[in-house]
């Protein structure tokens, strides 16, 4: 693998990690709200969150590119051009991978219900305390699924990256776009090496998750 390939791998890992962290912070309250609200807005929000699953990545990428560019609403507001930057890629990936983090968390929160929370409150736990010590451990499987799916989905992102980030080495050139470029340049050997890295990495991560889930199951009370 060349230095360029390694830097693309590094950008991909950074992008996926940042995206998952942002999504966990934003997604936890949103998933909690979706799991417990009786608001009539809920189906609309759920549909919005799920959009990236059905939308072609190029369409999503196109809109985000417009929004983040110097003439887009976000660019105007912040006096900033985020198109073709790493930050722009993170913002795009957050939207792109959102359903893969929100949906497992929402499912886990729905399964957990409010019963353990009420029990924790009655035992003098504050809201935060109850969430950290009772809800998140019980929803642990949901978190593991969310992290793995969010990470893997961001690692495999291609269409959105191409639209929003282009392929600037060291900044926005990620693994998937590098594989594409190797193939276009007929460098099958390098494409093979990079693809194998991604393949083996994905398999090992998923395997670890399934083994952990089997070894440490969370039992419903």
């Amino acid at each position: 693998m060349t230095d360029l390939d390694l830097s693309a791998l590094w950008v991909s890992v950074q992008l996926a990690t940042t995206t998952v962290l942002v999504l966990l912070l934003v997604g936890t309250p949103l998933a909690w709200w979706l799991a417990h609200t009786r608001s009539p807005l809920r189906p609309a929000v759920e549909a919005l969150v799920a959009l990236p699953i059905v939308l072609p990545p190029t369409v999503l990428g196109f809109y985000i590119l417009i929004a983040l560019g110097p003439h887009g609403p976000f660019g105007q507001l912040m006096q900033l051009n985020l198109a073709f930057t790493f930050t722009g890629l993170v913002i795009a990936s957050v939207f792109y991978s959102m359903p893969f983090v929100i949906q497992p968390l929402q499912g886990a929160f729905e399964a957990t219900g409010t019963a353990p929370l009420e029990a924790a409150w009655s035992l003098r736990a504050s809201q935060w305390d109850a969430f950290l010590t009772v809800i998140s451990p019980i929803a642990l499987r949901g978190y593991i699924s969310a992290i793995v799916l969010g990470f893997a989905h961001t690692m495999g992102e291609f269409g959105v990256v191409l639209m929003v980030g282009g392929s600037i080495p060291g900044q926005t050139r990620v693994l998937s776009t590098t594989v594409f470029e190797h193939v276009e340049a007929m460098e099958y050997g390098q494409a093979h090496a990079l693809s194998a890295v991604l393949l083996i990495f994905s398999f090992v991560v998923l395997l670890a998750v399934y083994i952990l889930n089997r070894r440490f199951p969370i039992h419903a009370s």
Binding site: A115, P116, E118, A119, A120, S122, V134, P137, I138, L140, I218, H219, A220, S221
Partner: peptide, 12 residues
């Protein structure tokens, strides 16, 4: 102290 119909023990 509150005891619910179901035990609601923390499974973890």
């Amino acid at each position: 102290g509150y005891v619910f119909q179901e035990p609601r023990l923390f499974p973890h």
